[in-house]
Design a protein around this nucleic acid. Structure first.
Lengths: 348, 348
DNA sequence: TTAGATAACTTTAACGTTAAAGTTAGGAGT
DNA sequence: ACTCCTAACTTTAACGTTAAAGTTATCTAA
């Protein structure tokens, strides 16, 4: 069908190997031949068959990507695309192809991720949104090729953990609220199947215990959806002794909480301060604009690729890469609590 | 390195071809052998080498995807991911792999999209966000493999156009505003390098000319960003004779317009009605919640894949697929204009 | 009984590329 | 004049799979 190396060889009266070498700029062919070959290749509109090349060199130059999106099909997972942009750019920059697998196709019902990857001969893989109860977790641990997992830590010889420093992020949020004078701070956490939920809960508990202010009854659990935030918001309002602030483990849930609070007539941020986590776009447009902890999703994708590439090249490198979170102050926290606290402290 | 068909063959004392046939469930091998082969394959953890298979069968089972994202890296393009979800699911459902190309890598500086695809032997490709001034447009027109282009129409033998029915969408929006009583309706359109901008402008002009209400001075042009919406909002406020409603050709811009209007103290929706286009997530959380025209991005991805697959299978099919837009009524339009209009009409 | 069919294989070659091991002519060194 | 070297190739084989064309032994039908 297409033009091959052989066609060029025939036309020039040389061997296919010579053409191959010329095209790859090897130093055991003359410059003359290189020039000729390139000219003819151009003329005949030759394009190399990467399948053949990959087969013979036993190098696929491919990275597999699996995205288990938190909110399937809804497009409410703006991180998915940001991860992917980072992955794509970094991979292509290094001459690697990205093969993307849908994580709820029939394919996965029959074959494991690892099997799928082996067939494609991918040199490495990247997972996002992997849950702690995933049935293939054991297999991942023993992967023969390197895997970067974003936001889920799986202990394995060939597996890395790429994430935001969640502990630091939570402390950034809580410390901000603390300095504003808040003492009763509730948490709305994500579901337990996400690794980050554990990290965030632990950091929350640690921080408040340090301050002697941890209260079991202020811990609420959602599932990262807006709806669940809305529901938890309702529960918070039912509390006899309401908190003055809520740390919400995802912006999407935070949006739901705020919706509920507004519906119930709360003045925001005066009557309740809220800090989210993620820094998704809609938070900027919410009223009040959402104060949150920003994650650099694009960069996480880049790091995920880099770790895999390092492994492929035989380097060892740290298996845990945590990016810096960032406190993004907008309008969802009451900044006057501080003055209130000062008055209280002055009195005592 | 890995286990091959030959290893299985050796172990069973049969030919490699027999093993291949058994694994592919051909009918010229005995059931006995099939059973044995499958057992051994499992036992040896065999996985087929798709590269070899693709090379010999001359079928790559791969579709290339290029996404020129409107807002690079910002993650403000929630459609990108929705398209992709649809593409991914439908492709994998049909046994096809998706290879994703970053559209601003060095790769593309050197090689054209088509060349990249040829090397990977993709059977078809999908483009999103392609601009009318793209330097490779001519090459796309003459593509040897089928290409679905989302939201940009390129006339070519092997090229299809997958989009929302933009004309219908615009008419849905304008008709809604018209029925609410609006007569001076401005438009903030996207830049001219996007095909949809032309379609939307034409539909806008057509509708208002039908009503004898088209005014050149009410046409504004942004570039799909929030910032440009904000700027156009300012220009609208400078008008001596203000419109009572604005149709904005993207939600992102609509958010910007609203921001500007609110900053300038306009009461919304009473003093200005706004309809967006796209139905992106943040619109729901805006105040007022954005009335808009919804596009089904997931389904557009699915259709794009389906067209390509049809072509691959030799079917002809329509080269233009338009999905139905949907009017999503929220709170950004003043519904009392209608009464006002009734009063006016009653008087005359 | 014997040609013909059929089931269940095997053999050969090919896909397009490259790695590894030749080959050859000409030049350098002594 | 001889060996040795080097540049610039060519030849052979391989990567793992499958298509196409054999090869048997056994069965079928008249």
């Amino acid at each position: 069908m297409g033009v091959t190396i052989k066609d060029i060889a025939k036309r020039l009266g040389v061997s296919a190997t010579a053409v191959s070498k010329a095209l790859n700029d090897r130093d055991d062919v003359s410059n003359e031949l290189k020039v000729k070959v390139r000219k003819i290749a151009e003329e005949m509109d030759y394009s190399p068959n990467s399948l053949a090349k990959r087969l013979v060199t036993n190098k696929s130059n491919t990275i597999g990507v699996f995205m288990f999106s938190r909110q399937k099909n809804s497009g409410h997972d703006p991180f998915g695309f940001q991860f992917l942009s980072g992955i794509m750019e970094e991979a292509n920059r290094n001459g690697y192809d990205i093969v993307l697998f849908s994580t709820d196709s029939d394919l996965l019902a029959e074959k494991s991720y690892i099997k799928l990857c082996k067939e494609r001969k991918v040199e490495g893989a990247i997972f996002t949104g992997l849950r702690l109860d995933d049935p293939h977790l054991e297999e991942i641990k023993e992967s023969p090729f390197p895997i970067s997992i974003i936001d889920t830590e799986v202990k394995g010889n060939n597996v890395s953990f790429i994430s935001t420093d969640n502990r630091k992020g939570v402390r950034l949020a809580l410390n901000y609220l603390w300095k504003l004078g808040h003492r009763r701070i509730a948490i709305i956490n994500g579901h337990k199947k996400a690794m980050v939920s554990h990290l965030r809960y632990n950091a929350y508990k640690e921080f408040l215990e340090e301050k002697g202010q941890f209260r079991e009854e202020l811990v609420f659990t959602g599932d990262f959806t807006e709806r669940s935030g809305y529901l938890c918001g309702g529960k918070i309002l039912e509390l006899k002794d309401r908190p003055s602030a809520v740390f919400v483990a995802s912006d999407l849930m935070a949006l739901g909480v705020i919706k509920k609070f507004k519906e119930e007539g709360l003045k925001l941020p005066e009557e309740m301060s809220i800090v989210g986590f993620d820094n998704i776009f809609p938070g900027e447009f919410n009223e009040p604009a959402l104060t949150t902890i920003g994650q650099n999703a694009f960069e996480m994708g880049v790091e995920a690729v880099n770790w895999v590439l390092k492994r492929i090249n035989g380097e060892k490198g740290n298996k845990k890469i945590l990016l810096e979170p960032e406190l993004i102050i907008r309008d969802s926290c009451d900044t006057n609590q501080f003055q209130w606290l000062e008055r209280v402290t002055a009195k005592s």
